[in-house]
């Protein structure tokens, strides 16, 4: 359900810990609707953690997260998720079509079977990502780029309002990259909100409306042109992290 008075995603004073060690500190965020947002930051900055926390996959140490004014749990239907490619076993005996159909499972509901409509949507998503011709292939027989497209098609099949993508550009070929860009633009044109974790600063510069720079806390969040400056990049990628890291270690030690 979309409550228009609320931002698509809002985080208030969110701290997330892994094994009691804080990896994100006091994050305050209001993601605007209908924008393409890039999340950048060095390794271990908590980018994936942020995405997983929004998806409701991780417990919060403090603060709250709302999706259109409600908890992520209540809003499952409108959150689409593209996890990192390594998160699943690609030897799993499922075909491309099967995986994309999994995106519909939330809508289909427990025990019930997929309907004709579900199949049509899956077909359309395959088409959109240009992988219809591999629909019946087992997923290990795909290239890295094709595998990424399968994940994107699956997220598309969720028919969500908000998409959270974890490093979709890692290990993909140029053709897939431009296919993903095209898809991102189309989602944006449909008024969807898309949050993309990105590694590559070059591409980040040109693709996104807004950039969120993260390094264990929000460094800056704003329109790409304003924040993609050497000063902010330096603040995100250069030093200063050490104290936060040391403090996190102290918290972990204190709590055993």
């Amino acid at each position: 359900m979309i409550l228009k008075n609320f931002p698509p995603i809002e985080l208030h004073d969110v701290t997330v810990s892994y094994h009691r060690r804080p990896v994100l500190w006091n994050v305050d965020l209001k993601i605007p609707e209908g924008k393409l947002i890039g999340v950048i930051g060095p390794n271990g900055a908590g980018k994936s953690t942020l995405i997983k926390a929004i998806m409701g996959l991780l417990p919060l140490s403090s603060g709250w997260i709302q999706v259109y004014g409600k908890s992520a749990k209540e809003q499952r239907g409108i959150l689409g998720y593209v996890p990192q490619k390594e998160s699943v076993d690609w030897d799993f005996p499922v075909t491309v079509k099967d995986v994309v159909m999994m995106g519909r499972y939330g809508k289909i509901g427990l025990i019930k079977r997929a309907s004709k409509q579900d199949r049509r949507i899956v077909g359309a998503c395959l088409e959109k990502l240009g992988i219809s011709s591999f629909a019946d292939r087992q997923i290990s027989q795909l290239s890295g780029g094709q595998q990424q497209r399968v994940f994107l098609a699956r997220a598309l099949a969720q028919e969500s309002e908000i998409y959270l993508m974890d490093e979709p550009f890692v290990g993909v070929d140029a053709a897939t990259e431009s296919a993903i860009i095209l898809l991102l633009k189309e989602l944006k044109n449909q008024g969807k909100t898309v949050l993309v974790v990105n590694h590559d600063l070059q591409t980040a510069q040109s693709y996104y409306d807004d950039i969120l720079m993260l390094n264990m806390r929000v460094v800056v969040f704003g329109p790409t042109r304003q924040v993609m400056t050497t000063e902010w990049l330096h603040k995100t990628y250069g030093g200063r992290l050490k104290i936060l890291t040391d403090a996190a270690a102290a918290v972990e030690n204190a709590q055993g």
Partner: peptide, 30 residues
């Protein structure tokens, strides 16, 4: 937190309430 981590001043109290009991002297020097 305010100066270097750029958090708003009204956000930092709760965090400091916890860390004041924990932070070792080495981190304090830093």
């Amino acid at each position: 937190l305010v100066k270097e981590a750029m958090l708003p001043a009204d956000h930092v109290h709760a965090d400091a309430e916890e860390l004041e009991h924990i932070l070792p002297e080495s981190v304090m020097r830093e």
